[in-house]
Amino acid sequence: MHAVWTICKREVNAFFDSLTAYVLLVIFLGLSGTFTWLFGQGDIFFVGEASLDIFFQVSFWTLFFFIPAVTMGMIAEERRSGTLELLVTKPVDDLEIVTGKWLAAWGLVAIALVFTLPYYVTVAQLGPIDHGATISGYLGLLFISAVYVSIGLFASSLTGNQIVAFLLSLFIAVFLHLLFGQMASVLPAPLANVAEFLDLQGHFQTMSRGVIDAASVLYVVTLTLVGLLAATVSLKSRSWS
């Protein structure tokens, strides 16, 4: 566990030492802020209700692009530059490496979300806000971020090219984000139910309405773990090639 923390600290420092963290934070806050407050059609003032629902919908999409950009280099760049060899030959387990990196990227997302807390405070001043729904909405964002970070790390572990890693993680995530939902509406009944359960957007909608379902949590945690394990296996596969 000590190694997980060490690696996490190093990655967070690397985010903030380079411009990565700042650029991404500015883009995330800029996009979600614009659509939440300034966009006109569909923004908070247009809806005229003290709710952060708009913000959650926007963030759901912004994070979809934001997270692969954070994770794309985390393993791919180490593979390309050769530092991976030095890292995995330290007395550290591959799973600890992946987990440390996962924690760092997830932490960065959490930091980005902390910066949006003023939205919450502001809207709460404007009218009676549903505190339960808002808190569970934030939890929902953290949950789906956990999944996307782990998918992004898996994609990053497969290649030495950051662009490939970025596109690959978008490709995998788009199924959970969008395609399963689409399938649910066209497939015949039993398959549609499966697709509906697999659709992350559905789970997220439920959460942002203030309902945190045990099945949703279980699904999200499973996806995250699968991603982490897949990334670990992909790191270990250097031995078999």
Binding site: R10, N13, A14, D17, S18, S81, G82, T83, L84, E85, L86, T89
Partner: peptide, 15 residues
């Protein structure tokens, strides 16, 4: 128990 220096000394250049 090993100190290892890989070929081309891959280190974190930004640290």
């Amino acid at each position: 128990r090993i100190g290892y220096l890989p070929e081309d000394t891959p280190l974190y250049a930004d640290m």
